[in-house]
Design a protein around this nucleic acid. Sequence first.
DNA 1: TACTCCTGATAGTCAGGGAAAGTCAAAGTC
DNA 2: GACTTTGACTTTCCCTGACTATCAGGAGTA
Lengths: 152, 152
Amino acid sequence: MRISDAITAYILHRMEETGDGTAELQRNVLAEQLGCVPSQITYVLTSRFTPAQGYIVESRRGGGGYIRIQRVKWEPDLPPLMHVVNSIGEELVPAAAQAILENLVSQKLLRPETARVIGAALTDQAYRQIPADQRDKLRAALMKQMLTAVNV
Amino acid sequence: MRISDAITAYILHRMEETGDGTAELQRNVLAEQLGCVPSQITYVLTSRFTPAQGYIVESRRGGGGYIRIQRVKWEPDLPPLMHVVNSIGEELVPAAAQAILENLVSQKLLRPETARVIGAALTDQAYRQIPADQRDKLRAALMKQMLTAVNV
DNA sequence: TACTCCTGATAGTCAGGGAAAGTCAAAGTC
DNA sequence: GACTTTGACTTTCCCTGACTATCAGGAGTA
């Protein structure tokens, strides 16, 4: 029995309990409860609760800090967005990004304004400071993150 | 339970009450009411009610002293969001980004969906691969880029 | 009246300590 | 080889208290 599985199960269970698809926890507390080091929690979150898997994670450090995990609710006519998110690999070139966005807009899965905003965040314009060989990876991560947030 | 949150909530509540987006208070009095030291009020003001987050704070010492917090009214001229874009510096920390978005939404200058999407692109979650010391710069660049794209 | 000085009533500053979560690389497991 | 686990170190945020700066008004003086 892996600790990671226990952590995952616990988080999912908590989500069920709250009823709104949200789980809020404190890293140190949970680590203590489950008998692992705190960074193990972080590991599980980054490997199993990613946007591509339909989750949004937000957190806060310092006194009274917390971690909140939220499961994305998919509207009946929106699963295609999920497919898109899953179909994006580790890297994404600008042209492909634009194509995906245009496609989504023409299918009425994305408002034009939303597409514009997403597109703006995916142009190399914004990545001046990022080494060229890392931009496509960043682009892919951002695209997934943003598409996932469209229908929280 | 964070005292900072209570102070923040109190100030926002006061702003609602007055109706003109202004709250006036006395530091010692509020500190007494909420059971904290006066400098805690100052801390909250400097960390959560900054100009970058859309607030102006003015104060006066001595007898009859006071602190007035005012929510910035963005001019309804064109282009609406440029004020915000211009007020963002070279770097942007996550908390400030979030605060700006909330402010814009509450002033109806941004659709909640759009704010969510932008917010998603500004969390550290999306920047795992980026060196920590470059994230705030990237965040600032992305924020400007996206806000500019809202009303093309 | 006019001026200075004192005093009490404010708010501001800053350094330090504590409480969280994040990072990363090395070691372990299957 | 990919995934897991660990722990030392870092960063962020919160809270406090001692000390400082500023203001208004009154007392004293001429």
